[in-house]
Design a protein around this nucleic acid. Structure first.
Length: 117
DNA sequence: TAAATGACTTAGG
DNA sequence: CCCTAAGCCATTT
């Protein structure tokens, strides 16, 4: 499984009502420090099947940029729909909503690194 | 192969 | 709290 595929899979596992940071997803995908690549994945692909709006930066800020500004408004609405409070400055209290996978899930994610799935 | 890019992160002023 | 600089590493050129 490639890094991109693992990122897709792991983001798909983030539950409704919770959020995760780019760095968190990268670490779970087996590449700590590859936070920017997670953003790269979401930018280059159109993850219609993924809860992409649950991915924000580690400061709790909705980090979409440039031509994605309109999408940023959508992201805020999607988060609020799940009960997550987003300030007018596109900031979330990330520690209150952060996704914390159980040891079992973490083991599953690690296993992806050497699987074909 | 090598250089450029970037929905990030951390540390320091 | 705002800003800058440097580190990071998969993808893209």
């Amino acid at each position: 499984m490639t890094f991109t595929e693992r990122v897709h899979y792991i983001i798909g596992k983030v539950p409704e009502g919770l959020v995760a940071s780019y760095g968190q997803i990268a670490a779970l995908a087996g590449s700590p420090g590859a936070a920017r690549q997670v953003g790269f994945v979401l930018r280059s692909s159109n993850p219609d099947e993924l809860p992409w709006w649950r991915i924000i930066n580690n400061a709790g800020v909705l980090s979409i940029k440039g031509s994605f500004e309109a999408t940023k408004q959508l992201q805020k609405q999607l988060l609020e729909r799940e009960g997550i409070m987003v300030s007018s400055g596109f900031v979330v209290d990330i520690e209150s909503y952060r996704y914390r996978p159980k040891a079992k899930e973490i083991r599953e994610f690690i296993a992806l690194q050497r699987s074909e799935g």
